[in-house]
Amino acid sequence: MVGTVLRRLAVFVASLAVSTVVVFAFMVLLPGDPARVALGTDASDAAVDQLRHEFGLDRPLPVQYASWIGGLLTGRLGTSYVSGAQIGPQLADRLQVSLILVLASMVVAVVVAVPLGVWMAVRHRRPIGVVLSALAQLGVAVPAFLAGILLITIFAVRLGWLPANGWTPPAVDPVMFVRQLVLPALALGLVQGAVLTRYVRSAVLDVLREDYLRTARAKGLRPAQALWRHGLRNAAVPVVTVLGLQLATTLVGAVVVERVFVIPGLGSLLLDAVGNRDLLVVQDVVMVLVAAVLLVNLLVDVLYVVLDPRLRLGDA
């Protein structure tokens, strides 16, 4: 098992290295000179050259790449071309906000989807299972921002139970933090949960048809016990795959919901940076997102190996 995990880890590191080159190359190939953008169209060539020198853009590409990688590895991500502020601390702040939101929404999704999906699978022949299945299908079709607006309308505007938007760091005011987190986490989580429910349902349905579940019943386990002890771990493998994909897409896709709820997350940082042609910020944010997605994939791969002994190569 350790060998398999190490192999996956090596793949992760290699992918990360390749992706830095790709991200860097993309930014170089994009048309538009950050110095020209910063100074405006009226600036003299001399002034632009001067700024290019300050940004370090007149150095050969390999040197630029090396200095960027060096900065990534030591945590110095450089300064914004536009605001001149340090990118590192700002990015860390935004990442933290996005991670909290995304993880909270994934918790909502799992808490909704796993019991509901299992129940729907067990009852798939009965009317209630069919009705729930149809409702989940409807949930899949609702975009998260619409769910967000609906939630704001009901719980913030009509009922006034929760704030409509905003973000307070947990260290500043834990109660306000939770109150403001509830609606965006629900908006993202319920929609993700609807998708996940369908995967949980089909994974459990597959497992229910397995011979080993019949063996478990033949041993004397009641249906629910057999499913709990022998089914869920097997059903978890496909569900973990989907969960990993959802986590990765939500990390990027949370941006719309961040806008709706006025949350200063990574997505809004990226959108602002793109709008301002703040290329180094774009480059850093994209790199962080790529690293996060790769990390999620690594975790999913490791989880597979933990869940399913058949995937543990080389230790038979």
């Binding site: 011979d211 063996t215 033949a218 004397g220 022998h230 771990r233 399913d308």
Partner: peptide, 28 residues
């Protein structure tokens, strides 16, 4: 009722199935 049947199953009456490749839980 199922609850009582489960007590008999595997203790008083047991079964060997046709397909050994899939009759055991792969993760246990």
């Amino acid at each position: 009722p199922e609850r009582e049947l489960a007590r008999v199953r595997g203790r008083d009456v047991a079964m060997v199935f046709q397909e050994p490749m899939t009759a055991l839980n792969p993760t246990m």
